[in-house]
């Protein structure tokens, strides 16, 4: 009976102030969706880091006219190097084959390239991927070596973009979140004001503080959870229509690891939990310090 009383109070309260309620829920939903996107990007970046950093290679490219003897000399050095875990030699022909394979959809490009124009290289895997710089320094200036390229550098550019997107989403989430909190506080003030008679009588006859405040706090929590549901649906929509739709090819290529459904689903309990707790605390603080219900 008490649960029923409280629930009906919550619904009536939200309905009485329906424009405000909608504003509150929409703001919360946007904030939470941004927070969810930010978290997904964060997971994505750490997934990708894990995926790629185990495969990272440093390529030592030779000059086009490097002699076999010069390359062998470097090869001996590579083989003996304690910084290098594994190595692989790629001849000009192998490099050309790989090039053909990689760009088979662009035959003009393949036709324009000659096997001789692609350099031979050593593909080496550092013992410690974080310390590839030492390898680069060591081999860069050597005779017949044209260039030393760390794949990590290329990936870091991508990660920087992701990190930037993640931060942007987080900033939007925080700003919208603040707006949502102010709306929650305002909605509760309005609700408490419109129910001040009931509240005064409740206090007079000795209703516990919990009983007086619960409907207001639950109103905020309820709106927060609805906001979280909307945010979750938004993320699902983005996953279906944008990530698996418009940008499908990008995510199916080897460049980006896919965003798994499990991560998207994980967002719901996280967002609902955050929304519920934050709304409840805001509601409670509002009641306690602003209107003394």
């Amino acid at each position: 009976m008490r649960a029923k009383y409280v629930l009906s109070e919550v619904l009536v309260g939200l309905w009485r102030n329906v424009t405000m309620t909608i504003a509150m829920i929409v703001t919360m939903a946007v904030s939470l969706a941004m927070l969810g996107a930010s978290l997904l990007l964060y997971f994505q970046v750490s997934d990708m880091e894990e995926y790629y950093y185990t495969k990272l290679e440093v390529s030592i490219f030779f000059d086009k006219d490097a002699t076999q003897a010069q390359m062998d000399a470097i090869g001996a050095e590579v083989d003996a190097d304690p910084l290098i875990a594994e190595w692989d030699f790629e001849t000009k022909d192998e490099a050309y084959k790989r090039f053909q394979e990689m760009f088979k959809e662009a035959p003009d490009l393949v036709n324009a390239a000659q096997p001789e124009s692609l350099p031979a290289s050593y593909r080496v895997k550092p013992v410690d991927p974080d310390n590839s710089q030492a390898l680069i320094e060591k081999y860069k200036g050597k005779e017949a070596v044209a260039n030393v390229v760390d794949q990590r550098k290329v990936l870091e550019k991508i990660f920087e973009i992701f990190g930037g997107m993640q931060k942007l989403a987080l900033v939007i989430a925080i700003v919208q979140g603040l707006a949502a909190l102010l709306l929650v506080a305002n909605t509760i003030q309005v609700a408490a004001f419109s129910k001040r008679r009931e509240v005064a009588i409740m206090k007079l006859v000795g209703a516990s503080n919990w009983f007086v405040q619960a409907p207001f706090v639950l109103e905020a929590v309820f709106a927060g959870i609805i906001g979280a549901i909307l945010a979750y649906l938004t993320l699902i929509g983005v996953k279906i229509f944008i990530i698996d739709g418009t940008f499908k090819s990008l995510f199916q290529s080897t460049v980006l690891t896919p965003i798994p459904w499990s991560n998207v689903h994980l967002m719901f309990p996280i967002l609902a939990g955050i929304a519920g707790v934050v709304s409840a605390v805001t509601g409670w603080v509002t009641l306690r310090f602003q209107i003394k219900v």
Partner: peptide
Amino acid sequence: AFALEVIGKSK
């Protein structure tokens, strides 16, 4: 009844 309700008395 409201006075009873809000202090947790049953219906």
